[in-house]
């Protein structure tokens, strides 16, 4: 049984097609990462799952609506919009209690305290939200989202703007929610987070699904066509035979190998040009795959 089943869904705003014939199955208990450039339809998809928007065509099924449970479907799903989404004038504890009750979760006091403690916010429990720093406010928003123990959690850019410590706290919290049985769907621009955290990765580009699967299956589809190279001394690499594209990472270079390229020949050529510190053949990173799909020049090549 899927937590979310999207079948052939389309949504347009006036002339602009935001989501185009999209299908997706999110298994229960999984962590599903949404990636894609800005304006590619991630937020629209999340909002359609939340029934804030209705699709023009297609069907979206969320959880098992026929299940014998006291809670309505809205109460079992939670959504953290990108940035803000919280009353600034209210106290931290007060606003959390409000969001819990809004989801029909009445006896929330103990849960609120537990979450505040674990997010290191207990000292701020009675302060107004507007007095918090951005990172703290973001943690409060996260607690507000999950306080009512939802079964499906949609997070829009939960990690943006968090320092590494807070990002780690949040990651742990997400993993623990999953352990407790929740399904988590989140969008992110941080490819390393997606690589580390997600069971499945889903990429949407110009409203269409371009990637969907586990990290391994996505990388397998691209094969081992990437070489990471570090050379002492600057050398021009873009005329290397058998290399389709060079990405300068600063202290290292990433070479995308042409099909049928001979890695031994490339290494030999590199050794002629300078002292090789590192030469590693591997699968492309998610970041690289993202760029290949979404950067304008790549699109032109295709």
């Amino acid at each position: 049984m899927s937590a979310v089943a999207i079948e052939a869904v389309s949504k347009s705003f006036r002339q602009h097609v935001a989501v185009d014939n999209l299908s997706l199955q999110v298994p229960r208990g999984s962590i599903y990462g949404f990636i894609g450039p800005n304006g590619s339809g991630k937020t629209t998809t999340l909002r359609m799952i939340m029934r804030i928007f209705f699709p023009d065509a297609g069907v979206i099924r969320v959880l098992d609506e026929s299940a014998q449970t006291q809670r309505s479907i809205l109460d079992r799903v939670a959504y953290l919009p990108e940035e803000r989404g919280i009353y600034k004038q209210m106290g931290v504890r007060e606003v959390l209690r409000f969001y819990a009750e809004l989801k029909g979760f009445r006896d929330s006091r103990a849960d609120i305290d537990a979450w505040l403690k674990r997010m290191d916010l207990l000292a701020w429990a009675d302060k107004k939200v507007q007095t918090l720093s951005k990172g703290m406010a973001q943690k409060v928003q996260f607690i507000a989202t999950v306080i009512a123990r939802p079964e499906l959690i949609l997070l829009d850019e939960p990690f943006s703007g968090l320092d590494p410590v807070n990002a780690e706290t949040l990651r742990d919290a997400i993993l623990e929610l999953r352990r407790d049985g929740a399904t988590i769907l989140f969008s992110t621009h941080d490819m390393s987070v997606a690589e580390q955290l997600c069971d499945f990765i889903f990429m949407i580009y110009k409203g269409r699904k371009v990637l969907d699967g586990t990290l391994e299956s996505i990388q397998d589809a691209y094969g081992s066509d990437t070489a990471r190279v570090r050379l002492d001394g600057a050398a021009r690499l873009d005329d290397l035979p058998g290399v389709a594209k060079v990405t300068d990472l600063g202290r290292a270079q990433e070479l995308r190998l042409a099909p049928e390229a001979d890695t031994q020949e490339i290494l030999a050529e590199l050794m002629r040009r300078g002292r090789v510190r590192q030469f590693e053949i591997g699968r492309p990173t998610l970041h690289d795959i993202f760029v290949r799909i979404a950067s304008p020049e790549e699109t032109n090549h295709a």
Partner: peptide, 10 residues
């Protein structure tokens, strides 16, 4: 403040 989205989600 995008609070509306959260409200409408509940």
């Amino acid at each position: 403040q995008r609070i509306a989205e959260v409200l409408l989600g509940s």
